[in-house]
Design a protein around this nucleic acid. Structure first.
Length: 575
RNA sequence: GGGCCCGUAGCCUAGUGGAUAGGGCAACUGCCUUCUACUCACAAAAAAUUGUGGGAUGCGAGCAGUAGGUCGGGAGUUCGAAUCUCCCCGGGCCCGCCA
């Protein structure tokens, strides 16, 4: 598909080679002009000025004259403007290449094999089983699943993993509160989803502990009992853990988050012995007088990190020490990604540094995908105080809004169909909102304003897709020969150029995690389609134009569909 | 005190060495033939209904125009800086027994 660029680069090289420029360099020099009327490819001549000992404008003019005398295949015009040499792709050739490719590859258009079947693990979500999932998890999961889909589209084999933090002091807090004030309440008797019920006692603990600080000591005792395998404590833990996990899996299913492998901290925390021993022998870890074990990282540009408590019990680091080598071994991973918020940036640098010092060859293949926090207008989410945006509630709320809109538009729609569409629209709105900005930035979530159906939103992209499909439905397979040369207006050309650039957008994601540029691309494509739709008739056009425009509509629909799919958003035929 | 990240119109955001800084929200002004509901004609059917062609109106998850900018501030590098370097200011996160 990069055919045009290639032939320009080849022609350029013939002109440039006397000045020692390679084909790669010539290709690299070519860029996309900021505006469509400036052409399809552009060569800024500024950096050639030194080698040519001439002004950029002179160089552009000379190259223009030389290149114009030779025919470059697929290029219809070359212009020199103020130091830039602009190339215009022949409209017919562009239309023919792009549409034939998309309509042939269909749902595969956009995919490539740059991943060469390498195996990567994407670990995401990582809930704590003492409270329900919140909007922060949804951001995590939206990023996680979108990366899974895009890595797959790039030819990687992806293992989707989750690490559940199902033990520790925070878990005991909800357990203790339940033990004291739970009155044998169950999900059934309370009507609450399991994870919500557990979360209720986590909040209750925080309230009670404010009045009675001695609860904190009791909780520590409970943790000790848990680690000592105390029967009663373990039974309570099992019961509440099952409630929480059941709740999570319902939310995962609803939101579309999937996992091939679920790890549990409770099964890992006590298996760190050998690796800690090895680190101690190598002098990476040191034992303090009080019995705690500490990772010495100060000489490596990081701060020291506790690896084991003075009583010998595990902390969070311990299980990643155990789990990471296992991951690489069990799945023969080429790379491992952790989708975790930016607050843990230092932690991961410490973890990876420890592996590097241990001499693990895969240490350099560990990547922390570091995304910003989701904040509320009032500040940070505080699960302990119940100041949070619950995932289930948010999905339900958005669904109700979508449902209202659907019913306004379709008086006769069946309840079942309306519900189905409403959920997909709600999920599209949420997921799109959460990936459309660069994810290093913190996200301010204003419940009243953030999730709209208008403007730069998931539903806007869905709506454009539904419009395209509606035209195709009404057109019914009219299959005459496509006259590619009829697609020559500005909106059509814009669409074609966008369709062509889709694979390039996809290709870059494994390199810089630029999910947001895929989202931005889809917005641009949807906007391009809507202008086209508005300006040019399809069904009522002259027969020859009609078939060509139908092909363009169909190709646009495929790309919208494929792009949405890569963001883990399901497209719908009607809204 | 140190480390990492962020700072672009009232708000949100793209652009990270190249052309006049590109979008969205909110505001104002238009437009709308394929979306949506309505309606008419014709055709098919026992009927619910379906198909084809037309009409006028409206909705808004549609299109466009207007308006809105010291790219946090300053210095430097460069033919060229929102983009690179340095200093400063503001915000967020983190800095040995939370996760």
């Amino acid at each position: 598909m990069a055919l045009f660029k290639e032939s320009i680069a080849k022609a350029l090289r013939l002109e440039l080679k006397e000045k020692d420029f390679s084909l790669e360099q010539a290709t690299e020099f070519l860029e996309k002009p900021p505006k469509a009327e400036m052409g399809d490819y552009s060569l800024p001549c500024f950096r050639l000025a030194k080698a040519f000992q001439q002004s950029p404008a002179q160089i552009a003019n000379q190259l223009q004259v030389k290149l114009a005398s030779k025919k470059i295949s697929g290029i219809e015009k070359i212009e020199a403007i103020g130091g830039y040499l602009n190339f215009f792709v022949e409209k017919k050739a562009l239309a023919e290449t792009v549409l034939n490719t998309v309509l042939k590859e269909k749902q595969k258009y956009g995919q490539n094999y740059s991943g060469k079947k390498q195996t990567v693990m994407i670990e995401y979500s990582a809930p704590n089983s003492n409270k329900p999932l919140h909007i922060g998890h949804l951001r995590n999961q939206s990023i996680g699943m979108a990366l899974v889909r895009t890595f797959e589209a790039n030819g990687y084999k992806v293992v989707k993993a989750n690490l559940v933090n199902d033990r520790g002091i925070h878990i005991c807090k909800s357990m203790l509160a339940y033990q004291k004030w739970g009155k044998e309440e169950t999900p059934k008797s309370s009507g609450l989803k399991g994870d919500h019920l557990v979360g209720k006692y986590y909040v209750l603990f925080a309230q009670k502990a404010k009045e009675n600080p001695r609860l904190e000591e009791e909780v520590l005792k409970m943790l000790k009992k848990w680690e000592a395998d105390d029967k009663a404590v373990r039974a309570l833990w099992k019961k509440m853990d099952a409630w929480a996990q059941q709740g999570f899996s319902e939310t995962y299913k609803l939101f579309g988050s999937e996992f091939d492998k679920v790890y549990k901290e409770s099964e890992l925390y006590d298996k760190a012995g050998p690796i800690v021993q090895k680190a101690l022998e190598k002098g990476i870890f040191e034992k303090e007088e009080d019995g705690s074990v500490i990772a010495r990282l100060k000489n490596h540009g990081l701060s020291d990190k506790i690896a084991l408590r003075k009583d010998g019990t595990s902390i969070y680091l311990t299980q990643d020490l155990v789990l990471t080598p296992t991951k690489f071994k069990d799945f023969k991973l080429d790379k491992a990604f952790w989708i975790v918020a930016s607050e843990q940036d230092l932690y991961f640098r410490q973890l990876f540094k420890i592996f590097e010092l241990l001499g693990e060859p895969w240490a350099k293949n560990c990547v922390h995908v570091n995304y910003g926090l989701v904040n509320l207008p009032s500040g940070r989410l505080k699960s302990r105080e119940g100041i949070t945006v619950d995932a289930d509630d948010l999905i339900e709320e958005m669904k109700q809004l979508a449902l209202k809109e659907i019913k306004k538009r379709h008086a006769k729609i069946s309840e079942k169909e309306a519900e189905k569409r409403a959920l997909l629209i709600a999920l599209a709105a949420i997921k799109f909102f959460l990936v459309k900005t660069e994810f290093q930035k913190n996200l301010l979530f204003n419940p009243k304003e953030s999730l709209s159906f208008e403007g730069e939103t998931g539903p806007y992209v869905l709506y454009s897709y539904a419009r395209a499909k509606s035209i195709l439905r009404k057109a019914k397979g009219t299959k005459e020969k496509i006259r590619f040369d009829t697609l020559k207006s500005a909106p059509e050309k814009k669409l074609l150029a966008l369709l062509q650039s889709f694979p390039t957008v996809v290709e870059k994601i494994p390199i810089n995690f630029s999910l947001h540029s895929l989202a931005q691309f889809l917005l641009e494509l949807a906007a391009g389609f809507n202008s086209f739709y508005h300006e040019l008739p399809v069904l009522n056009a002259e027969p020859e134009t009609r078939t060509a425009r139908l092909a363009l509509v169909e190709a646009t629909a495929w790309v919208l569909h494929n792009g949405l799919e890569m963001l883990d958003i399901q497209s719908i035929e009607q809204m």
